[in-house]
Design a protein around this nucleic acid. Sequence first.
DNA 1: AAGACTATTGTTAGCGC
DNA 2: CGCGCTAACAATAGTCT
Lengths: 187, 187
Amino acid sequence: MTRKKVKLAYIKNDVARKATFKKRKKGLMKKLSELSILCGIETCTIICSPYEKKPEVWPSTMGVHKTLARFRKMPESDQSKNMMSQESYLRKNIEKMEEQLKKQHKENHEKEIEQMMYQSLAGDKLIKAMTNVELNELGKLVEKNIMEIGEKIESLKKIMRTPPPPPPPPQRLRTKLQILRARQHVN
Amino acid sequence: MTRKKVKLAYIKNDVARKATFKKRKKGLMKKLSELSILCGIETCTIICSPYEKKPEVWPSTMGVHKTLARFRKMPESDQSKNMMSQESYLRKNIEKMEEQLKKQHKENHEKEIEQMMYQSLAGDKLIKAMTNVELNELGKLVEKNIMEIGEKIESLKKIMRTPPPPPPPPQRLRTKLQILRARQHVN
DNA sequence: AAGACTATTGTTAGCGC
DNA sequence: CGCGCTAACAATAGTCT
């Protein structure tokens, strides 16, 4: 029941990775379908997974060829424009989160000051009703938030540091020995 | 605040469609990125929208070429296998929902019988505590559910009946007159 | 037009079968 | 192994700025 908050990193456990792959691929196909229906546009995707011998293609091979033709029509130089590489996508993400982190820090600081004011000046009745315990927990929540954002940034940076495709996908064909070994791994 | 439950159909209102497109494209890119990181696989997408002069490509032009090469490598005959066309995707969807509809109907029937039993046999204290009003509302909820599933099936079927790409995407260049006319449309 | 916000709906991780 | 379930998490439609 989704107990973890998803750590954005290669899933080492083979079984879990495959399950996640299937579920998420399904979700993606649905979203792609919705996008093309809602907005009346053309899209195509190719997914190369070790679970199928052949790349999976959507919405159809014909559709892919059609969209591809359109893509190949434009001059080489233009093909590089308007593209969002995984790297720049991640970089942008990091920037945004660092901004968020700053904002959260600032907010935290303001909250602390506010709290001090209430404690020393005997503020509004509603606020007085809050016990110190509650205020403390509020503070902890904020700190947790900050921690989480920081961790996320770290993990994104880590992904960017590692060579292009994260860890190499597992070999398609394995000996029985390898399979047995794999089973001993825990994620 | 997401007040509607999303009617899966071409969005006629130009402004709303564009906003939805941008939001959903962003969400898609994120999900694609996550899939490739979590599962360590290769993916690529091409999106042809009227909002950009050139097809948008992800994760990068190079990535697309690489994935394409892999795609083109397989024999023509194989390219058609393992593919899920939009049509078969939708058809599968419809089947599943019709099953769900049957199930819901059955459940509803059972609930009705249960309710009658309780009313005539003076059942458990907890159940007796439910007023008739509450039971009535429960029934209405179930019916609403059934209605919604039915509507969804209808709308999916409608999509399948209409020719491939839903309504033709709007022209890229429009005269001022056309723009003014478009503004008068309400979704 | 482009972002921020937030009530809602939608997706999915971990289980149990 | 793969499916169905459901709490927990994520995406997003409509709104305001």
